[in-house]
Simulated scan of single mutants.
Amino acid sequence: MPSNDKLFAYNLGLIVPLSEATLHISDLSVQRGYGVFDFVKVQQGFPLFLDDYLDRFFQSAQLMHLSMPLTREEIKQVIDELIARNQLPEAGLKMILTGGYSEDGFTPMNPNLLITQLPLTLPSEEKVAKGIPIMTHDYVREMPEVKTINYSMGIRLLHEQKANGTEEVLYVKNGLVSEFPRCNFFMVTHDNTIVTPANNILRGITRKNVLSLAGRRYKAEVRDIRLEEILQAKECFLTSTTKRILPIVRVDGVLVGTGKPGEVSLQLLQDLMELEDSQIAALRE
């Protein structure tokens, strides 16, 4: 596997060595934290569910009034070239669209597009088998339907997470749970109904896939979830591109269900991995 100093990135219209990728200080991503991004998992050398991620990336750009400098097909060509050059079979591709170089440090100009590819490590079997503890925090993201580069709250809470021994923070507002900084939330009720929040969330691609898979085996619902419900749930888990499905065994110090990953969560993880394998097989053809 090549070291990071031998990787390539797409930087302002050119594919260059990652070590040479630069952005001027006048860019609104630096000045005001203004920009959007998306993240695609590369598995066995193939970008999984790429069209879904591009749909969301373009939608985020539109909602933030940022024009995309490349077409979808041109972005796909760049991604194919990066995968070929970097030779990283398991990796994460990050596409960032910034507010551009702003003359007054406030007004968006011509957006800048950056695409990087870095090695990716998925959760270990041990972590999945053990599950993770989480904490909650009173917060809801501004424009949660947009995947912006503003992760200030999630980053600020890392210190508190470390202090209380939790691995993720679940946002709650007015008693309703929404999402994690980088993941979606799911709950399993005692009759094996799979429930995920309907509002104040980013509609994750893994969330979409899990909802589809869940509907084949169980009843699935998209609705508001109150904090007290998850403390009485049979199981809870999170979903994301980089974590797939990760069981949650403790919330604010309270055990979820038996305090161990449940059979529904683990079955859905197996189904998701099989879906990824089928996607890879289709892309090989």
Rank of each mutant, 00 (worst) to 15 (best):
Gly215Val: 11
Gly204Ala: 07
Thr189Phe: 07
Leu113Met: 10
Pro108Val: 08
Glu142Met: 11
Val140Gln: 11
Glu167Trp: 00
Leu227Gly: 11
Thr121Met: 06
Ala198Lys: 13
Ile149Val: 10
Pro111Phe: 07
Asp138Glu: 11
Val172Asn: 02
Pro108Asn: 09
Ile132Thr: 05
Glu167Leu: 00
Leu118His: 10
Lys234Asn: 10
Asp191Glu: 04
His159Tyr: 13
Glu167Phe: 00
Gln117Trp: 03
Asp191Val: 07
Thr148Val: 11
Val222Gly: 08
Ser124Ile: 09
Gln232Asp: 06
Gly175Asp: 03
Ala198Glu: 14
Ser212Arg: 13
Val195Thr: 10
Lys130Gln: 09
Gly175Phe: 10
Phe180Cys: 02
Val169Asp: 05
Ala198Phe: 02
Asn209Ala: 06
Asn174Val: 03
Asn110Ile: 02
Ser124Arg: 01
Leu202Thr: 13
Val210Arg: 08
Gly215Ser: 11
Thr136Ala: 12
Ile155Glu: 08
Glu142Ala: 13
Leu227Ile: 15
Ala233Arg: 09
Tyr139Lys: 02
Ile205Trp: 12
Leu176Cys: 04
Thr116Asp: 07
Leu231Met: 14
Leu170Pro: 11
Leu118Ile: 12
Arg216Asp: 13
Ile225Glu: 10
Asn200Glu: 15
Tyr218Asp: 15
Asp138Tyr: 13
Met135Ser: 15
Arg207Tyr: 10
Lys162Pro: 12
Phe180Asn: 00
Val222Pro: 09
